[in-house]
Amino acid sequence: MIDTGDTWKLGILFSETGSTAVIERSQKRGALLAIQEINAAGGVAGRLIEPVDCDPGSIPCEYGRLAEKLIAEDCVRAMIGCFMSSARKEVLPVVERRNILFFYPTLYEGFEYSPNVIYGGACPNQNSVPLASYLLENYGNRFYFIGSDYIYPRESNRVMRNILRQGGGEVVGEVYIPFDAAQDEIDGILADVAAKAPDVIFSTAVGETSVRLYQSYHAAGHDARRVPIASLTANEAEMAEIGREASVGHITAAPWFNTIDTPASRRFRESYAREFGPDIKVTSCAEAAYFQTHMFAAALDKVGGLDPDQLRECLLGASWDAPQGQVKIDPDNGHTWLHSRIARVDEKGEFIVQREVIRPVKPDPYLVTPDLNDRRLRLRKATPKARQP
């Protein structure tokens, strides 16, 4: 056990159990990998970073309760965590009241700002807008929305509906699935999908619900190569659980994919495999937790202490060479300039990038300029590269 009197504490608030554990475990590993690398290099100012870990069990109210515990009992002054927006909303008033710095490494629906949060995941102009453009161009204009029943899916679908309206798209169906949905409920939704014959399904289902949806879609005989499920959240860990045959053809928008072949991306993949095993899947949310933890350590090194106000000032405008490419924290809104990529699952079960934005995209969390023809968001075809062994 690390001597806490000689360490920098970082609260880790990801679920190891429950409906979203398949994703949050990967985020936790991303943060722990960064901590391991930082500590192996001597820590920060001669002191190791100590992760103080809690398992909220994918229960939204537990995130808020455990955030309070981390602060009051464990004396944590910075933390990283949460996947679901409902969980983030529970933590937000705690960190604001206590003036704690909170790193949120997950894409979300936007329309939020807090001086106590550093947002490391994509907001709608960085993923929803380019994904809508790609789908309208390549598949058609009839969309069917399927989501889990909480804040993020409902708000993301509202945003996506407005974006599609600009491009001449229409939503032919919109349904929400509870986390404990019975199989016949999912089957009934897919029967409605078959009857309405959309060109694309836009899914904001998450965790175990998402896995069951994709598996049921395949079992019902739907061809994802012709009518894919497109998502902002589906990732390598989920696709591994879904299975290779049921994953082929589906589409995700994200800043990073496991198949990106750059020196920084290869180092990240290789380090992750050494630390957790070659069969453990890496995700874009894990990549975000990884680079956010490294950026926290870099700011801590410059400031020399855990004062949230000083750390925040140091982080705003800071950049880092992340596995996805260069990222930067926007000084105006605390969100992150990220890369935008669209990938499709191939026959091997891997995401292959189809389109990408040339340079990092400035975050626009309030979607002030949701223009499908915005030059900054124009996608170019990805150039295939041979992946290094």
Rank of each mutant, 00 (worst) to 15 (best):
R266A: 12
A289I: 11
E16L: 10
S85W: 09
H222K: 15
M84Y: 11
S15L: 01
A78L: 06
G317Q: 03
C314E: 15
F268P: 03
R312E: 00
N127W: 09
M239P: 01
R376G: 04
L101M: 13
S216M: 08
P255S: 15
V52F: 10
D223P: 01
E96S: 07
E73C: 13
S247C: 09
N39K: 01
V227D: 10
T209H: 04
Y150N: 02
F351N: 05
R376S: 12
G169D: 07
R359P: 00
L315S: 11
A194K: 15
V91A: 00
I329C: 05
V248K: 05
S58N: 12
S231G: 13
G30S: 06
L10W: 11
F111N: 15
R25T: 14
I59V: 13
P263R: 12
G18W: 06
A34L: 11
G43P: 02
V353L: 07
I177S: 02
L10C: 11
L136R: 08
S216K: 09
R154S: 08
S148R: 00
D149Q: 04
A72W: 04
D301C: 02
I80W: 05
E208S: 13
L190I: 01
D184E: 15
V200N: 10
H218P: 01
F351Y: 14
A318T: 10
E24S: 11
D374C: 12
G305V: 00
D321W: 01
D74F: 08
I189A: 09
F103S: 04
Q183M: 14
G249N: 02
F296H: 01
M160Q: 14
G81D: 08
P365V: 07
P370I: 00
K9D: 06
N373Y: 13
G173Q: 01
W337R: 02
P384N: 10
G64R: 12
G167C: 10
T293R: 03
I35P: 02
R88Q: 05
Y152C: 07
I242H: 04
Q354E: 15
R25I: 08
G334E: 08
C285Q: 11
T4V: 15
V44D: 07
L379Q: 05
H294F: 07
V76W: 06
G167M: 02
E109Y: 07
E275L: 13
A122W: 07
P153I: 00
I100N: 11
R226P: 03
G43N: 03
G173T: 08
A41D: 04
G121F: 13
I100Q: 02
P308K: 03
